[in-house]
Simulated assay, not measured.
Amino acid sequence: MTINVIPAPDEVGRATGLADISAARVDFNCYVQAQYPHGSTHVSGTINVVVTTKCDVPVARMRLAAELYRISPYARYVGVPKVDTDVISLKANAATSCSAGPAKFQGLALATIQPPAGFKLRGSPSRTERGLVRSVACGQAFAAADAGGGDIAESWTLNFVRADAESD
């Protein structure tokens, strides 16, 4: 997973009341997750990975992209990046044809987050799980127990704090 944090804008946003958020909040979190690659239940005949970014409050700008990797023989499948401003969450995916399997796959989330004006990243992002390689073949049901009890392969939490609330 790749996460970039860019500095907050100099001016407080107008669109979704970011001025109110900056004044009322001391801190907030953003979460970036990548699911295990799986045979798609939405688009027949494909293997895909879904990635999400969700923040507690709207952020100035967010970009999210997904990549799906076949481990052997190596192949990389890139999804269309999603970009939005004054947004709380984004969802993206990358997919390939079922003919690329059965094989071992890994998903990757690439996120860029720009917090509202007056906020900065506190510390380093914390990772709760590592993106794991998973065997995928179309037509086989996803078994959460086989994947460690859930559909999330990797999860990161980023904590943003008011720039005037914490010194470096």
Results as ranks from 00 to 15, higher is better:
Met1Arg: 09
Thr2Ala: 15
Ile3Trp: 09
Ile3Met: 05
Ile3Arg: 11
Asn4Phe: 07
Asn4Asp: 11
Val5Leu: 06
Pro7Gln: 13
Pro9Cys: 05
Glu11Lys: 14
Gly13Pro: 00
Gly13Glu: 11
Arg14His: 07
Ala23Gln: 11
Ala24Cys: 01
Val26Tyr: 04
Phe28Thr: 02
Val32Ser: 06
Gln35Arg: 13
Gln35Cys: 08
Gln35Gly: 12
Tyr36Glu: 04
Tyr36Ser: 04
Gly39Thr: 06
Ser40Asp: 09
His42Ile: 06
Ile47Gly: 10
Val49Gly: 03
Asp56Trp: 00
Val57Glu: 14
Val57His: 04
Pro58Met: 02
Val59Leu: 03
Arg61Phe: 15
Ala65Asp: 02
Glu67Asn: 12
Tyr69Val: 12
Pro73Met: 10
Tyr77Met: 10
Val78Glu: 13
Gly79His: 08
Val80Leu: 11
Val83Trp: 07
Asp86Ser: 15
Val87Ser: 01
Ile88Glu: 14
Ile88Gln: 10
Leu90Asn: 06
Ala94Thr: 02
Ala95Lys: 08
Ser97Ile: 05
Ser97Trp: 12
Ala100His: 09
Gly101His: 07
Ala103Ile: 03
Phe105Glu: 02
Gln106Ser: 14
Gly107Asp: 05
Leu108Ile: 10
Leu108Cys: 07
Leu110Phe: 00
Thr112Phe: 03
Pro115Gly: 01
Gly118Leu: 09
Gly118Ile: 09
Phe119Thr: 08
Leu121Val: 00
Arg122Cys: 00
Ser126Trp: 05
Glu129Asn: 13
Arg130His: 10
Gly131Tyr: 06
Leu132His: 09
Val133Pro: 00
Arg134Cys: 01
Ala137Lys: 15
Gly139Glu: 06
Ala141Arg: 11
Phe142Pro: 04
Ala144Asn: 10
Ala145Asp: 13
Ala147Phe: 02
Ala147Ile: 00
Gly148Lys: 13
Ser155His: 14
Thr157Met: 14
Leu158Asp: 06
Val161Ala: 03
Val161Phe: 01
Glu166His: 10
